[in-house]
Computed example of a mutant assay.
Amino acid sequence: MIHLRIVSPPNRTKEVLDLLGGDDAVCNVITLPGRAIKPTGDMILADVAREDASIVVSDLRHLGIEEHGSIAIEHIDTALGSNAAAAISSARGEEADAVVWEEVQTRTSEEASLSWTYLAFMMLAASIGACGLFTDNPILIVGAMVVSPDFGPIAGVCVGLVTRRGHLALRSMLAIVVGFAAASATAYVVAQALLVTGAADRDFNVDSSGLANLIASPDAFTFVVAFCAGAAGTLSLTTAKSGALIGVLISVTTIPAASDIGVSAATLDWHSAAGSAEQLIANIATIILAGTLTLLLQRLAYNRRRRAHDRARADDLASGSTPGTPRPRASSPRG
Score class of each variant (00 low, 15 high):
E51I: 15
S148W: 00
V159D: 05
G324Q: 05
P326R: 12
I176P: 01
S272A: 14
A181T: 13
R313T: 12
G291Y: 07
N11T: 09
G69N: 06
I176C: 04
F121Y: 13
V57E: 11
L19C: 00
I73F: 09
I261K: 04
T13C: 08
L214D: 07
P153G: 10
T267L: 07
S109Q: 07
G64C: 00
T135A: 13
V196E: 10
L60F: 05
Q105M: 14
A112S: 15
T286L: 06
T325F: 09
V157Y: 10
S58R: 13
L19G: 03
I6H: 08
F180I: 08
T197S: 14
W270H: 01
G243S: 15
P328R: 11
S208H: 07
P333L: 08
P149L: 00
F204I: 03
S58C: 06
I2Q: 12
A183H: 15
E15V: 04
L32H: 04
R299P: 00
E51Q: 15
T267H: 09
N11W: 12
G152N: 07
S259Y: 02
Q192S: 14
G198W: 07
V7T: 11
V48Q: 03
A187T: 05
T222H: 09
N213P: 00
A274I: 05
L32W: 09
T108C: 10
R50K: 08
A25V: 04
L235W: 10
L17R: 06
P328A: 12
G320A: 04
H3K: 14
H167T: 07
A169N: 02
K38A: 09
S217M: 10
A175E: 11
Q298V: 08
A301F: 02
R92N: 09
G34T: 01
E74W: 12
P9R: 05
P10G: 12
T292Y: 15
S332C: 02
G230T: 04
S58N: 13
D42M: 04
D201G: 07
I73P: 03
Q105K: 15
A229L: 06
F223L: 14
T117A: 14
D203L: 15
E74F: 15
L289V: 13
V142Q: 09
P149E: 08
A112D: 04
S332I: 05
A53K: 04
E15L: 15
Q298M: 13
A125M: 05
G69Q: 04
A318S: 06
N28F: 12
L235M: 11
I261E: 08
C131L: 14
I287Y: 14
H68G: 06
A290G: 03
D136M: 11
A244G: 01
T163V: 03
